[in-house]
Design a binder for these strands. Structure first.
Length: 282
DNA sequence: CGGAGCTCCTGGGAGC
DNA sequence: TGCTCCCAGGAGCTCC
């Protein structure tokens, strides 16, 4: 699910609730939740019990929690993962995968994930930047993101612009919703060829990506249902500000034309037929 | 090698 | 009520 704004919302909540706390116990309730941790659940648990969480960091859609050991808990929410702070007395969620308790007996941290596409792992020595996510590009909210290099790489690709926006090794953090929103703002159809974008057009696209991500962070992310919530189970409200995604048949906020829905990469894409004309050739 | 398609899961909702 | 089909905010793997 969660794209950069939703993950950032979770990061902010987690940092507030778990930074400085020491893990007492770890329970793994489903093996798929730690499938990226190859040594298995016994090792996962042993690496974490007694460790203090220093902070919560994020790159793109990945989170990591640096520990006082120099290791880190690295995680991805996948399509349906949630990190929730819960009192120990709260009922166990149906899809609870991992539970952390802390030595202060305060709220627990629970990883809940219906579809099990998400997961956590311990990254040895990964406190600074886990090796597991070194293949991921910086995200556009990162102060060290290189705009010029992005524009050059984007224009050097032989692919379609939406596919490129979803390529986490080119630019991280953008998913299906915010790709459609940035393309709508840019007046570009997702099937446009990246190597035919002018430099100014590519720079405008990046600016729109950054703007829409920033606005969504302020709104606490986009929530269509209870699957996408912050660490306290609360929904964001950026869905009210969407211009394209999920608006099939509704009037374009710029020109009034009905928003269309098309299949692309086996998923839905939403765009304005008038503001975002389909390219002649693919 | 870069690019494109398939696959891993569960459950909600629509349609019959 | 109950079945079947379609859909979902992702990304790693594998093929060409």
């Amino acid at each position: 699910m969660p794209e950069l704004p939703e993950v950032e919302t979770v990061r902010q909540g987690l940092a507030k609730w778990v930074a400085g706390r020491t893990i007492r116990t770890v329970e793994v309730h489903h093996p798929r939740a730690i499938r990226r941790h190859l040594p298995g659940d016994g090792h996962f648990i042993a690496m974490l019990q007694g460790r203090t969480v220093l902070d919560v960091s994020r790159r793109g859609k990945y989170l990591w929690l640096p520990l006082d050991s120099g290791d880190a808990i690295v995680g991805h929410l996948g399509m349906s993962g949630q990190l929730l702070m819960q009192p120990a007395t709260a009922e166990t969620e149906k899809h609870l995968r991992i539970r952390f308790t802390f030595t202060d007996d305060g709220p627990e941290l629970r990883f809940v994930d219906q579809r099990t596409f998400g997961g956590l792992a311990v990254s040895e020595g990964g406190a600074e930047l886990p090796a597991e996510i070194s293949h991921i590009a910086r995200d556009p909210m990162d102060p060290l993101f290189d705009d010029e290099a992005f524009v050059a790489r984007l224009r050097g690709k032989h692919t379609e612009v939406k596919r490129a926006l979803l390529d986490q090794t080119l630019i991280s953090g953008v998913g299906n919703i915010y790709a459609d929103e940035a393309l709508w703002r840019s007046g570009l159809h997702g099937n446009r060829a990246t190597d035919q974008l002018t430099r100014p057009a590519a720079k405008r696209l990046l600016a729109h990506v950054r703007d829409v991500l920033g606005e969504a962070i302020v709104a606490g992310g986009t929530s269509f249902d209870a699957l996408y919530v912050n660490v306290n189970g609360e929904s964001g409200y950026f869905d009210r500000a969407l211009n394209a995604y999920g608006r099939e048949g509704q009037p374009c906020h710029r020109c009034g034309t009905a928003i269309r829905r098309e299949q692309f990469m086996n998923r839905s894409s939403f765009s304005c037929p008038r503001c975002q004309p389909r390219p002649r050739t693919r």
